[in-house]
């Protein structure tokens, strides 16, 4: 049997994946981009090539405010998830000596993820409410006289829920890269006279960067694309881009929703592009 030329074999091997990606990733995005130029009436959408959707979107002050709000949520959530995620991963990787314990504690982190993320989010509502557990505890401890109103249906509760929901997405990749740091490097640093802080600053953090970056991409993408957390935790009083899209879809304004989605996609890609300039993930993995 004649052997196929090498280039053909390579193409054939790549084909299944390429087809899957083309059908389920590229085609939908192309469709969204196409529809974003269409027009809409109250009950129908019609093919067209017009810039109305973008014109309205980009000239509306509300859009800018909502995008700013979305990025604000993403940034604050990122700071907290990174801080907590890094600390947890560091503890697991370097302070817990036995591998059994490492695995056990790591699994412990994942237990909350056995329930739906909506449930995890909604369970904050009775906790933070005006007559909720947090306020009741603070009042009975004598810390406050009147219930704190800002605990629920505020930016605070939105970010709290985000941090709670997404910290694990930071822990996992950081823990993973930390586990693969050659311990002899740390010993060498210590032998060379580095203090704990210096080891962290010059050895561990640089070597953990790919993990931090992967975690960052997860968190940023999840928060920027969210709509349900913002809706429930802000009591519908705040908006982010996801909610804008959801509102448009609910009102049958698909073209306008598509245009918003395209702008959001571009924004997220730019952010991730910028992040990847700092670290070459592929090289480091």
């Amino acid at each position: 049997m004649r052997k196929l030329p090498e280039s053909v074999t390579a193409w054939l091997l790549a084909a299944p994946m390429a087809i899957v990606l083309a059908l389920f990733l590229v085609a939908p995005i192309v469709m969204i981009v196409a529809v974003s130029f269409w027009g809409a009436t109250e009950w129908s959408i019609y093919p067209a090539f017009q810039f109305d959707n973008y014109a309205f979107l980009l000239t509306s002050e509300v859009t800018w405010r909502v995008f700013f709000n979305t990025i604000k949520y993403a940034f604050i959530t990122w700071v907290f998830t990174l801080g907590i995620g890094f600390t947890v991963a560091y503890f697991l990787a370097f302070h817990v000596r036995s591998q059994t314990w490492q695995i056990a504690l790591f699994l412990l982190c994942t237990i909350p993820f056995w329930t739906s993320n909506i449930i995890r989010m909604i369970s904050w509502i009775p906790f933070l409410g005006r007559n909720g557990l947090a306020n009741a505890a603070l009042i009975s401890a004598g810390v406050i006289d009147a219930p704190l109103e800002w605990l629920l249906f505020s930016d605070f509760s939105v970010i709290l829920a985000f941090v709670h929901l997404y910290t694990l997405f930071m822990v996992v990749p950081i823990f993973n890269t930390m586990m693969r740091i050659d311990k002899s490097l740390i010993e060498a640093a210590v032998d060379a006279g580095a203090k704990g802080r210096q080891v962290l600053r010059y050895v561990i953090i640089p070597l953990t960067k790919p993990g931090i970056m992967i975690g960052t991409i997860f968190v940023v993408a999840l928060v920027m694309g969210d709509f349900i957390t913002v809706r429930f935790m802000s009591g519908s009083q705040s908006a982010n881009v996801g909610r804008m899209i959801q509102n448009d879809i609910a009102l049958l304004a698909y073209p306008s929703a598509a245009a918003t989605a395209v702008v959001l996609l571009a924004t997220v890609l730019m952010i991730i592009g910028a992040l990847l300039r700092f670290v070459d993930i592929r090289k480091e993995l």
């Binding site: 509502i125 009775p126 409410g129 005006r130 007559n131 909720g132 629920l152 249906f153 809706r231 802000s234 009591g235 519908s236 009083q237």
Partner: peptide, 20 residues
């Protein structure tokens, strides 16, 4: 003025029942 806005039946029930 507003504590929250609601969209579904359940939300309106919870807001009222909890005293929010």
């Amino acid at each position: 003025q507003f504590r929250a806005f609601w969209k579904s039946f359940d939300e309106s029930v919870n807001l009222m029942a909890s005293g929010e």
